[in-house]
Design a protein around this nucleic acid. Structure first.
Lengths: 343, 343
DNA sequence: TTGAAAGCGCTAACAA
DNA sequence: TTGTTAGCGCTTTCAA
């Protein structure tokens, strides 16, 4: 209830929001002291802490992190790039990444690159311009230009969901090629040798397909029939793919699908044609989405611990941001084939 | 190729990144002129534009948007809050929101509030602190404290996926209660009167359930059997719910599910028990997820145009940020029952 | 069309 | 433990 004649007067700039300056003035301390009361409370006396708390409560002050970030060169912002958020595959990773970061006081910025590489460049600029403390890529960065920019920016980068011999910086993923090989071994061990693949046309799925083809060849199995469908994959494209596969009159007794949704589509189409799964046709998916265990027949699939990927990526970046050395900068998270009814 | 003896010397602060200052120096203009060449190229001569472009290309300059935002009070950042990114429901909205914003040069920040309200407060602070140009909430903000903070922050807010008579600011959604009522009308018109509901325990699903219960009552139908399952909903919880429903010995010939995943679970469990759908049991889902049309039997479901919600929200916020007046601040996007095989 | 000066709100560095 | 000073890198304001 002061008699201040101009209670809300502001200079011509700014938003009119409460600033640390005002909090400090009300608390009767210097701005930097108020700053310390907030950020490094141990460096400040009990008394000061209390006064500042009160002033904050009274004013509803919310620190302007743009200013803080600019001054300290630490934004507490992490960018994640996904092809599209709509594909269910990376969701677990994004979720655990967001959570793990939030726990440490970091916020996530989301960028969608699309499955085409075209927008990636503009996206990269938008991201780098915010000076995030880290960038998490789903997949690896291929364009040499992109790699250069990221390196030049000096921002910690984690590539995920893939392996490469030459990561930009840090990496947590697994070998898609090995997934394909493991699938072939699985089928072969169960007497299935006439293999088909239904695959999304994104790059990682394509490498799983290559793994299947290569492994089949070295095991002297018949040539693998490959059917590509556009990414992101859907149940429908799985159904259509099986239809086409059947009408192609190729012979096959097992199908490896590049996603669980495709696998469910294949299983569904098989059911509508009264083709018994797995008796006549074995089907394997990829992803172990939450429905995989509970559909009929339940889906045999490849499980990748997307949550662990997100957590590990968060840890990598936070460690770096807090100045800790990161020693093992490449983590192979592996995968696992979950045996269920469909294969 | 200057003979500068200390080519990369920096002051003790800063990151060492190229600044506009440097670009300007190389281009031989004042920093503000370089700034204009970037942001308002019309205000600058062709010659200057060219020199600045060259300097940028030579240095790999990426503007620091933290600094820009601080100076201009416009962050070009929009925050989105979802309960969890893992539920498929909001994905479409987030995707179209991200895209529509990216087109206008805005970036999305993602926050997960969890289905419990506890973390919402900390999240709100983290968000407001970044001074986004807008905040998109999935669902409406209930806590009076949260509403106050958002209003106090003076940031444009769009609540989505719901209706309320008292929005904080802008809103694009639909009535969940009406969805429930429409489902009852649909069932009734097809001779189904003994209704059951399987519902996630989140608040919007609960209101759909209330709609069903209320409509059944006013239509003098038998009491609705309600089964709640924890959110986020899964195919498995749908299967379990039908099991419980059956063992409860209640009589019902139609089930309204609060998500397509639940509906698929109910259908799956029915199949495993040889209960014919829809002959003996009608099943309706919610969401029209991409698999709904292609499973067997295909799912009758409630379709909400999540993409439109995201687009509209983006438009609301961009309009506000660019200083345009927004007239109709509440949009009811409606919904639609898609008739398919399951009901 | 171009520029000089003065901040935006905060924190690093140094000093007391 | 607290404070002073000087920026962080950009854009607004005002002037030429």
């Amino acid at each position: 209830m002061s008699a201040d004649p101009t209670p809300a007067r502001r200079s011509r700039r700014g938003t009119g929001a409460v600033t640390l300056h005002e909090v400090a003035r009300i608390a009767g301390v210097a701005p930097i002291t108020a700053s310390r009361a907030l950020n490094t409370p141990d460096q400040v006396s009990e008394e000061v802490r209390k006064k500042v708390q009160d002033a904050i409560a009274k004013t509803g002050y919310v620190p302007n992190r743009l200013a803080g970030s600019l001054a300290s060169s630490r934004s507490k912002l992490v960018a994640a790039v996904v092809p599209t958020i709509a594909g269910p595959v990376f969701l677990e990773t994004i979720q655990s990444l967001t959570e793990a970061l939030a726990e440490k006081g970091y916020q996530l910025m989301l960028g969608q690159s699309g499955y085409a590489d075209s927008r990636e460049d503009a996206l990269l600029d938008a991201i780098i311009g915010r000076r995030p403390d880290g960038i998490v890529l789903t997949g690896i960065m291929h364009s040499e230009q992109g790699r250069q920019r990221l390196k030049a920016a000096g921002i910690p980068v984690v590539e995920t969901w893939d392996l490469t011999p030459s990561p930009i910086d840090m990496l947590v993923g697994f070998s898609h090629e090995q997934v394909g090989r493991a699938a072939v071994a699985y089928f072969k061990a169960r007497g299935r040798t006439k293999l088909a693949v239904v695959s999304g046309d994104d790059e990682r799925a394509a490498r799983r397909t290559q793994g299947v083809v290569a492994a089949a060849r070295s095991a002297h199995l018949p040539a693998v029939t490959v059917m590509n469908v556009p990414a992101p994959t859907t149940l429908r494209s799985g159904r259509e793919a099986l239809s086409e596969l059947l009408s192609s009159r190729k012979d096959f007794d097992a199908v490896f699908c590049s996603s669980d949704l495709l696998a469910l589509g294949v299983v569904t189409e098989a059911r509508s044609r009264r083709i018994p799964v797995p008796e006549q046709l074995s089907v394997m998916g990829f992803g172990d989405l939450d429905f995989a265990a509970d559909v009929l027949p339940s889906l045999t699939t490849v499980r990748v611990d997307g949550t662990a990927i997100g957590r590990k990526a968060a840890q990598f970046i936070v460690d770096r941001a807090e100045g800790r050395a990161v020693k093992d900068r490449v983590v192979d998270i592996g995968f696992e084939i979950i045996e269920r009814q469909s294969a």
